Structure formats: C-alpha cells, structure tokens
Amino acid sequence: MTSTLTIGRRRGGIEILQFVRDKTSLIFTFFFPALLLLLFGTIFSDSYDHPGLSAARVFTASMIAYGTVTTAFITMGVGIATDREDGTLKRLRGTPATATAYFLGKLILVAALTAAEVVVLLAVGVLVFDMPLPSDAGRWLTFAWIFLLSVTACSLLGIAASALVRNSRTAGAVLNVPVVALQFLSGVFIHPITQLPGWMITLASFFPVKWMAQGFRSVFLPDSAVSMEAAGTWEHGRIALILAVWCVAGLVLSLATFRWTSRRD
C-alpha cells in the first residue's frame, strides 16, 4: 500500500504544478513583496549611523518576514478555503489520501514557495541595493531554524484561519487584513522599531511577525545594528521560544477549527 509520505509528496507536486499554472497567483506571490522592497528601499535611501548599514539593507532583512507571512499564511488559508468550497476536500476523503497526506502536500507547496520568495527578496537586496550576504555559517544556521519555525507557525495559523473564510473569493481580502496590520505593528515597514510607541511594541511582542523580522535582521545586518532593536539585543532564545509557542498554538487551533466541508454543506 502506498504510504502517507509518498502520497503527500505526490500531492505536493500536484499543488506546486497547479500553483505555477495560475499566473495571477504566481505574479502576486513573488513580485508584490519584491515591488514593495524596491519602493521602500528606494524611497527611504538614507543610511544609519552604522558602517555599511543602509535603510534598503534593513528593509531587505525585515521584509523576508513579510514574504514568509504572506506566502505561508495566506497561501495556506486561501488554498484550504478554496479546496473546501469547490469540493476538493470532500472528494479527497473518498480516496487513499489521508488528512496527513493532504496537509503534507500543502506544506510542501508552502515551503517551496516561501524559499523561492526569500531568494527573490535577497536577489533584489544584493543586485539592486548591494547588500552583502553573510559569510559566517553560524548566521545561515540561525536563518535555517528561524525560517523553519516561521514557515511552520504561519502555515498552521493559515490552516486555522481558513475556518474564518465564508467565501473563497473573499479569502485573500479577509486574510490580508491581519497580515498588513501586523507588518506595521511589528516594525517591518518602520525601522528602527523604537520609533513606534511603547504600547505598540509591547502588543507586537505577543505575535510572531515581530520576532520573525527581528530574527532575520540578526542574520543579514551587522552586529552593530542590534542597538536599533527595542531590547538592544537580538534575543535569539526568546525568538525561538515565542515562535515555538505559536507553532503549538497553531497546531491546537488547526485541530480545533479545521472543517472538511463548507458551512452550507
């Protein structure tokens, strides 16, 4: 009998193929964050009081968090809402594809898209804004675990959020509202984050986006830039803890809210 892992891998290949064929989703997913980076990096071109640190480099590092959230959270939420409404989930229940295989396929899609999104944003940073990439293996290791925890948390939260969507045609609009709000609240588009009111920084600290952006800045910015963070340190331990907590919370919410059929069914 074909294993769940094999079915999940095959399902992931199908998901990627379907996504690539949708030119609108492909363009929006990959080029919109890159366009925002080009705009912010060009408009806010001033340098900070740190050697080799420009606003464009800061935005490049921070917007990796934005690209991860939009790609993982929204792609997962919209995809599941669409599959539920058009009957894909109902039909899958009558096949050998288990729920685990279905979600594994979705996770493969999200992981592939998010990795590609990061490559696009880094390419813009390097080719347009002359941002140097880290040469230290330790920084890339830090990037790896932050990226893994971020994608996992956002994907699980996307699964849970799909239950809030009543109509797949409005899914993107519904899910974009908290995403855009958290970007500004978490200092992705505003840096140093200390420019934000203290209560806003405190509120952002309860959500994963602030820690994702801070973690990616710790990888791609020089150590001197740590003075621009709210705590004056990169807080890698706290980043790992909070993102792990959101992974657990996302899993619990997913199990509690996921539905195979639409509400009218």
Rank of each mutant, 00 (worst) to 15 (best):
residue 2 T to C: 02
residue 4 T to A: 14
residue 6 T to I: 12
residue 10 R to M: 06
residue 11 R to S: 08
residue 13 G to Y: 03
residue 13 G to C: 03
residue 14 I to V: 15
residue 16 I to S: 10
residue 16 I to F: 13
residue 17 L to N: 08
residue 23 K to S: 10
residue 30 F to P: 07
residue 32 F to H: 09
residue 33 P to V: 00
residue 37 L to Y: 08
residue 43 I to A: 07
residue 47 S to Q: 13
residue 48 Y to D: 15
residue 50 H to R: 09
residue 51 P to R: 04
residue 52 G to L: 00
residue 52 G to Y: 08
residue 54 S to E: 07
residue 56 A to Q: 12
residue 57 R to V: 01
residue 58 V to D: 12
residue 62 S to D: 08
residue 64 I to H: 15
residue 68 T to Q: 15
residue 71 T to S: 13
residue 72 A to C: 08
residue 78 V to R: 00
residue 80 I to P: 05
residue 81 A to K: 01
residue 81 A to C: 02
residue 82 T to R: 14
residue 89 L to Y: 09
residue 90 K to H: 12
residue 92 L to W: 04
residue 96 P to S: 05
residue 97 A to M: 09
residue 109 L to H: 07
residue 110 V to T: 04
residue 111 A to P: 06
residue 111 A to G: 07
residue 113 L to D: 04
residue 113 L to K: 01
residue 119 V to C: 11
residue 121 L to D: 09
residue 121 L to N: 11
residue 121 L to Q: 12
residue 122 L to F: 05
residue 125 G to Q: 04
residue 128 V to Y: 09
residue 132 P to A: 10
residue 132 P to C: 11
residue 132 P to T: 00
residue 135 S to I: 00
residue 135 S to Q: 13
residue 136 D to F: 04
residue 139 R to F: 10
residue 144 A to Y: 06
residue 156 L to T: 07
residue 156 L to E: 00
residue 157 L to E: 05
residue 158 G to P: 13
residue 158 G to F: 01
residue 164 L to A: 15
residue 166 R to Q: 12
residue 166 R to C: 01
residue 170 T to R: 14
residue 171 A to C: 09
residue 171 A to E: 09
residue 173 A to Y: 11
residue 174 V to W: 08
residue 174 V to A: 11
residue 176 N to E: 11
residue 176 N to C: 05
residue 177 V to M: 10
residue 177 V to C: 05
residue 182 L to F: 12
residue 184 F to V: 04
residue 186 S to I: 00
residue 189 F to Q: 03
residue 189 F to N: 03
residue 189 F to V: 03
residue 192 P to R: 10
residue 193 I to A: 15
residue 193 I to Q: 14
residue 195 Q to N: 06
residue 196 L to Q: 04
residue 205 S to G: 15
residue 212 M to S: 13
residue 213 A to M: 12
residue 215 G to M: 04
residue 217 R to T: 01
residue 219 V to I: 02
residue 224 S to N: 12
residue 230 A to F: 06
residue 232 G to Y: 13
residue 232 G to R: 11
residue 233 T to G: 05
residue 239 I to D: 00
residue 241 L to Q: 12
residue 247 C to S: 09
residue 248 V to A: 08
residue 248 V to R: 14
residue 248 V to D: 01
residue 254 S to C: 10
residue 255 L to D: 03
